Simulated assay, not measured.
Amino acid sequence: MTISKRLKQESLEPYKKRKYNSIDPYKSYIKKRYEETLPKQIPSSVILREISEYGYTGKIRILQTYLSTLRNNIKQDAGFPKAKNIESFDFSATNVDEMQIRELLSLDFISKAENILMVGASGVGKTHLATAIGLKAVQNRIKTKFISLSDLMLAQLR
C-alpha cells in the first residue's frame, strides 16, 4: 500500500506485523551449503529438495530471494564498484596482455603473497579487470577487498 492510499483511509489501522518467514530456521544450513559449493552455484531446486526433507514447506521463490541476498552480500563486502566478469572484457579493443590476465585469474599470485597494481590511461579497463579478478577470488572463498588508489591514499591520511 502506498503512503497516499494509507493517508486516504478513514480509520488508520495499525500495520500488521511482519509474518514469520518460513525460511528463517533453515538459513544457517542454506548459507553453509551455498558456501560449500563456491565457486559454483548450487541450484535453488537442489537446496529446496534438501530443506524440504527437514520440514521446509515454503515456496522456492522465498529460497531464491534469500540465495540472491547471499550472493549480493559476498560481492558487496568486497567493495566492487560494479560486477564485471572477464567474459565481457574486449581484449581486442586494448593492448592488454590477455595471457597475463588469464594467469592472474588462476589466482596463483595470492598463494605467493603478491599484490596486483594496474596502471594505465583512463578507459583501458583497469577497473573492469581488477573487478573480474576480485570476483574470481570471491567465488573461490578468498577474502577480497577492492580499493581504488585515491581511496587508499585517503585512508592513509586519516
Score class of each variant (00 low, 15 high):
P39M: 06
D77A: 11
T69K: 14
L135Q: 14
L104Q: 02
E50N: 03
L38I: 07
I86F: 09
K19Y: 05
I62N: 12
A93M: 06
L38P: 03
I3M: 12
Q76C: 04
G134C: 08
N21C: 12
E53W: 02
N95T: 15
G79T: 07
P14N: 00
L152C: 09
I60C: 09
K145R: 14
K145N: 04
K27Y: 01
G120Y: 08
I110A: 01
G120F: 09
R6Y: 13
I30Q: 00
T127Y: 01
I3E: 11
K40E: 12
I3G: 01
R18E: 11
I133E: 06
M118A: 15
M1K: 01
S111T: 14
E103T: 14
K84S: 04
F91R: 02
S52N: 10
Q41R: 13
R102K: 14
V46C: 01
R158S: 14
K19L: 13
T57D: 11
L117N: 02
V46K: 13
A132Q: 05
I116E: 07
K32P: 01
L63W: 08
F80Q: 07
Q41W: 09
Q156S: 10
L157D: 04
K59Y: 01
R61M: 06
I51Y: 02
R6G: 05
K27T: 08
S4V: 07
S106K: 15
Q139H: 10
S111R: 13
N85K: 12
K19D: 11
N140H: 14
L38F: 07
N85S: 14
V119R: 05
G125F: 08
T131N: 08
R102D: 14
V124F: 09
K84L: 02
N115F: 04
I86R: 06
I74V: 11
F80C: 10
F146E: 00
R33M: 10
I116M: 09
I147N: 05
N21L: 08
D151F: 00
P81D: 04
S111D: 14
I23H: 09
K136E: 15
T144K: 02
N115A: 09
E114F: 04
N140F: 05
I23Y: 10
R71S: 15
V119D: 04
I42G: 03
L157C: 08
L104N: 01
D97A: 08
E36P: 05
S28C: 00
T65V: 03
L157Q: 13
E87Q: 13
R61Q: 12
E103K: 15
T57C: 07
K8V: 01
K59N: 10
Q9M: 03
R6N: 07
I147K: 11
K145F: 11
L135C: 12
K5I: 01
